[in-house]
Design a protein around this nucleic acid. Sequence first.
RNA 1: GGACAGGUGGGUGAGUGGUUAAAGCCAACAGACUGUAAAUCUGUCCCUCCCUGCGAGGUACGAAGGUUCGAAUCCUUCCCUGUCCA
Length: 375
Amino acid sequence: MFFELQAECGTTGARAGLLHTAHGIVETPVFMPVGTQATVKGVMQRDLEGELDASIILGNTYHLFLRPGHELIRRMGGLHSFMAWPRAILTDSGGFQVFSLSGLRKISEQGVLFRSHLNGDEHLFTPESTVDVQLAFGSDILMVLDECPGYPVSRESAAKSMERTVRWACRGFSRYADQVDGSALGPALFPIVQGSMFADLRAECAQALRELNAPGYAIGGLSVGEPRSLSLEMTEATAPLLPRDRPRYAMGVGMPEELPEYVARGVDMMDCVLPSRNARNGCLFTSEGRVLIKQARYREDARPVDPECACYTCRTFTRAYLRHLFQAGEMLFSTLATIHNLKHYLDTMRRIRHAIMSGTFPAYLNGVRATTGVV
RNA sequence: GGACAGGUGGGUGAGUGGUUAAAGCCAACAGACUGUAAAUCUGUCCCUCCCUGCGAGGUACGAAGGUUCGAAUCCUUCCCUGUCCA
């Protein structure tokens, strides 16, 4: 994989570019739907590719390692083949599970000892093993194993954790260098900037990781319970310190109206479970804000979810029907809602990219800020 | 006509003398969700009062009467429902 910078905003940090991968070109800034277990929950690959036109999705090392196992996936021809997804895949390392499964793991210098949430088996994840597993998947972009601390943490433990994440990144890159041939479209490994909510630790981490000359860099440890303004602040303190000619990936963010805020701070890639999870829980993102479809006010609402959305769901169904499906617990609701929410995110990113390419991003950003009041 | 079984808050269904405005589940209503242990979770859910809390008051377990300090729970009569026998 390699990155091609196409345009930069003159007044903000926004950029537009192309991610060249062995499974297609990804236009950035990009939103990556989350497909933890080799599926974006509720959506068929056909719709992901056609209706939604997603160019890259996420998978998760921890989950796919436990089930069905990386060796099985390798034997099945790799993750792309296994899940019949021809476009790009980025796999997270399991670093986030260090945070989300905090009751089931033990961290040491060597790595993370997980107890499987499926059957209690113990598994040791190391910076080396997670690279191996992701290479077995055949991922286009691999993430290095990191430690994602919760919020808040003391400065002292944030520093220790960050330093360990840097050491782990070095080990991951060392293993990675041994395994790949360095071809331009080959798999890329991204290190992850940590440092909790301490700007100087973030800066220190970014400086240290630059040494790796990585094909791309991630900003992790966001949206772990901190105020949303802090997430943006940390991004602002980190992104400019990363190499200009490499993509920057803000992990796990954010709300729809925050997407341009991250882009304005120099972020090129984002992923988040919000559009897919909230869809399943009845929360639909629209050009006019959130629609909680279960509310009684939508019982006989004949309008589409979002009059300005061109997705299949909005082209075809009324709010009243979607509410009915949700109330009835019908699985079709999840599919239709997820299609809409992902379309909303992906279209938002396409608009952002277009604005950057045409030099109108500052105006676009101001427009969003005026209507949503973010920042 | 006879023999059993049973009538509990929107539904279902616990509870068989006191800490019961009455479990649980469902429905309804509202909220949460940020590198997915999530088709999940939380709250409200008889009425009234400032809902400020472990608040206060009222009404309530088919109906009416009774026993008791105290009844959804015990007794009497009536009404209704289901199954079986004629």
